[in-house]
Design a binder for these strands. Sequence first.
DNA 1: ATACAGTTGAAACTGATTATCAATTTAAAA
DNA 2: TTTTAAATTGATAATCAGTTTCAACTGTAT
Lengths: 144, 144
Amino acid sequence: MIDSIENLKEILKEKGYKLTPQRRAILDTIIKNQGEHLSTEEVYDYVKKDCPEIGLATVYRTLQLLDDLGVITKINLDDGCARYELNINSEDHQHHHLICSKCGNILEVEVDLLEHLENEIQKNYDFEVKDHKVKFFGLCSKCK
Amino acid sequence: MIDSIENLKEILKEKGYKLTPQRRAILDTIIKNQGEHLSTEEVYDYVKKDCPEIGLATVYRTLQLLDDLGVITKINLDDGCARYELNINSEDHQHHHLICSKCGNILEVEVDLLEHLENEIQKNYDFEVKDHKVKFFGLCSKCK
DNA sequence: ATACAGTTGAAACTGATTATCAATTTAAAA
DNA sequence: TTTTAAATTGATAATCAGTTTCAACTGTAT
Ligand SMILES: [Mn+2]
Ligand SMILES: [Mn+2]
Ligand SMILES: [Zn+2]
Ligand SMILES: [Zn+2]
């Protein structure tokens, strides 16, 4: 969805928000670490290299804001803290995660394959599906 | 999976745990409120009627224990606290949840319909799926 | 009845997240 | 470019779910 810092300013301006060096640095960090699922503290540690004076509260606030704006997505890996990842396709549904119960490694699943299930849900429950969160637990190739 | 308090004692005994009035009362509460997704505090409030002297720490400990034993399942509805529900079929996968973004109502989906997706995952990622957590977000029949 | 391991409740503690607030900064207007 | 108002920041305190500690208590096997 977001190509670079260039259009972050536009996205912010639309809602009356300002582009600050802190916000820029935080998004830079997330883009640079694409593929990771960073916690707030982890983003804080990374971003301090570019922006040593930044406060942890600002990181919490900014990640929440970027999530509200649809730039990033908050995910829950049941490890006691929120994690975030960059949104690639804003239109598309959130991708699935495979979580290895043994080594804790996270794999991402590109295919969605939920159309059939979602159609059944629309039909049987009269529920209009907008998005989903899907986690699979099990053993990865190395651990089984 | 669990029929009544009768076999809770057996399940506990197998692992060297004891059947206490507190554990009995907590499971009673969960059985009585089947279909709800109770938080620890909510279980605490209900169970105090039968067991007024019970401590909140005991409720936390017992819910965790029952989850470990496979009697109940912890679920995360992104509202800041853990919630639990009785396990009906221990063998089967956890059922799906439909969460209305407007009214917050939770619907349960009986059909699984994930075999195809799970087969693709086994094949393409060499990942052995044991269980899953699936949440759909959208609008329920009343809200759309 | 005894013994002992498991359990309890109260209270202190932890760790993630949020709220507060005075000082600072952005962005738009003058 | 200066002015201005609203948004933002960092430090700190506060909150809140959940965990730990520990002395007193209880369930169960013998
Ligand atoms: Mn991911
Ligand atoms: Mn349910
Ligand atoms: Zn693994
Ligand atoms: Zn609704």
